[in-house]
Design a binder for these strands. Structure first.
Lengths: 346, 346
DNA sequence: TCCCCGTGTGGGAACGATGTCACAGTCCTG
DNA sequence: CAGGACTGTGACATCGTTCCCACACGGGGA
């Protein structure tokens, strides 16, 4: 790490509405009316004000405006982990929609830590954001924000269904479709890699898996359901353990892109052939899945759209605070690629 | 897309410092002193105030505080494209560092559009952010923000070197190392895929490429330097054109992860073998590069650290506005994998 | 002629928090 | 015991903006 030094400049005071008023020879009220377009302002005066503002480089102070109006034009977005392409894409979608609707986005990466999550929530309350989009880790955030009168939209996962809006994907259907695909190919020993099975997204995907097995008349084998941690390293380790075992599964359904990555790496390290030795299907299509060889079949969700839809819902909620809460379910689709085939002959 | 409806709750007024004062039976000034810890407050009074604040769920209004103090605790982060893992990771690093330093992060995805970039910059000025970290697309943003007295740190790319701080990686060295690696393996026809060659990052990488060729006594062939667009599709198309040609290069150096992805896809589509037919090395190591087969050699930059360092620099700058501006250069390293080998015999 | 109304403008009170200042006690010291 | 030092508290101005209200002006109808 190298460092170079150079001299630096200084600065002055920021122009306020008062400065603009003096420059244009009118009162502050008139400037405000001319700039915001609310209320009367003769066209020549308006023009004079606009010119003065432009010359001074005047930018209205959002703090003061929000203080007065008691409502800001920014929304908070709380995601778990920006390094995960899923959340990054979701944030990107939220960002575009926010900009289009004239909102500023305040984003915090909560790193899967409950502490960071509540810290961030408090910061958003302090900022008097107009609303919050969150990928929640517990019901605490939504409850807290709602108690402060801040509209919340839960996205991807949903803890406060019934009291707050939600935007999720068809987790159960997606998981069932993916698992059924394996069943139809003739697989009977189908492992599930999943982060957790009790709440919201994880629960739904687990149920979808169970439903597909049931429909295929297959008994669930608990040792084939792996509750892995949240990172690639952990998932890889668990996959190594399972796939090295004597009667390993003939197929794996990985319930998210991180777990899929771990499983994929483990498969590669063990020298197993896909789909010859083992089939793999993932929930959440990520770029690498169409780049590796063989390409990986995946349930694709419109992640960008998820973020955009959440912000759209939020903005509707802000405009109609009393309307019934709504859960929007985006559809998913299975993209069948090269990683799935009938099980090997015994 | 399905939608479910449910009834919803209502809300009340947010507690202010005045409410806390009344509840605790003291004046607003005392509450302020008790909560911020600045100035006198008897310990029993302090406790009473704290209890009252907690009971009411009081959260100080950042707007009012900032308005009064004329300095906010939030920083703006402007990145080009959150869907690109590079920027996502950079933002994640910035986010962590910002949180650690007690700053709220306002993030905008400028989508490579100059319009969105200046809109976002204006929004940040309006928000009176304490400083801005930006991956600039032109010198306009830095100039604009600096003119408003807002400290700026340019990260990844640098347009305003000399007047604002910068945090970049060793682009020239990295590009030279990558290209030299190919030269040492015996390659003579080495293509460069790059977005642009005139400014900052692109220029440096181009120079590194040229230096390595010069050191190897290889003449530059202009038709081997491809100025591709910014997306995978474009890069793929350009790569298809070049690699289908009669005397295609024996190696490609792709100057960023997006271009590398395009080239990789093109190589796969043409059925060329890596590294048998063609070697590939990329600038910017991305997860897929260690997942595909063969794995792709890459110049790895600490992207997360880049974001974190930029925010750290910004925070130092905010504390010492008059200090000399500094450019920090983070080192990179070549990770040699399976995609590089001597050129095929002719 | 008087009044009313529409149009355009300025004055001033909020919004919520902070921090200076003044004042009232209490304690200590000479 | 007087006077200063120190502690604790409340009143009040302030930040930049908005917006309600008052007012001024001119024209038109009664």
């Amino acid at each position: 790490m190298t460092v170079e030094r150079r001299p630096s400049p200084s600065r002055s005071r920021r122009p306020t509405i008062k400065d603009v008023a003096e420059a244009a020879g009118v009162s502050r009220s008139t400037v405000s009316r001319a700039l915001t377009g609310r209320g009367y302002a003769a066209s020549d005066v308006r023009e004079r004000v606009l010119r003065a503002a432009a010359e001074l480089g005047y930018v209205p102070d959002v703090m003061a405006r929000t203080l007065k109006q008691q409502v800001s034009r920014s929304v908070g977005v709380l995601v778990s982990d920006l390094r995960n392409p899923f959340y990054a894409e979701l944030a990107a979608g939220a960002s575009r929609e926010a900009r289009e609707r004239g909102y500023t986005m305040v984003l915090a990466d909560t790193s899967l830590s409950a502490e960071a999550e509540s810290e961030a929530a408090e910061a958003l309350v302090a900022l008097r954001v107009a609303g919050v989009v969150v990928t929640p880790n517990s019901s605490a955030v939504s409850t807290y924000l709602s108690a402060h009168g801040i509209p919340v939209v839960e996205v991807d996962r949903q803890f406060a269904a019934g009291s707050t809006d939600g935007v999720v994907v068809g987790n159960r259907v997606g998981a069932r479709t993916a698992t059924s695909h394996l069943v139809e190919l003739g697989h009977r020993r189908i492992a599930l890699f999943i982060d957790e099975t009790d709440w919201t997204t994880g629960y739904e995907r687990y149920q979808g898996y169970l439903e597909a097995l049931a429909a295929g008349g297959i008994k669930v084998e608990p040792e084939l359901v792996v509750s892995s941690g949240w990172d690639v390293a952990d998932s890889r380790r668990r996959a190594l353990d399972m796939l090295r075992g004597p009667d390993r599964p003939t197929a794996v359904f990985a319930a998210n892109n991180v777990l899929a990555e771990g499983v994929w790496r483990a498969i590669g390290e063990l020298g197993l052939r896909v789909p010859g030795d083992i089939s793999l299907v993932a929930f959440d299509d990520t770029p690498w899945m169409s780049m590796v060889s063989p390409t990986v079949s995946a349930v694709s969700q419109n992640t960008y759209g998820l973020g955009a839809t959440a912000v759209r819902r939020l903005s509707e909620r802000i405009e109609m605070p009393e309307a019934d809460s709504v859960t929007t379910v985006l559809n998913v689709r299975l993209i069948s690629r090269e990683s799935t085939a009938p099980p090997p002959e015994i």
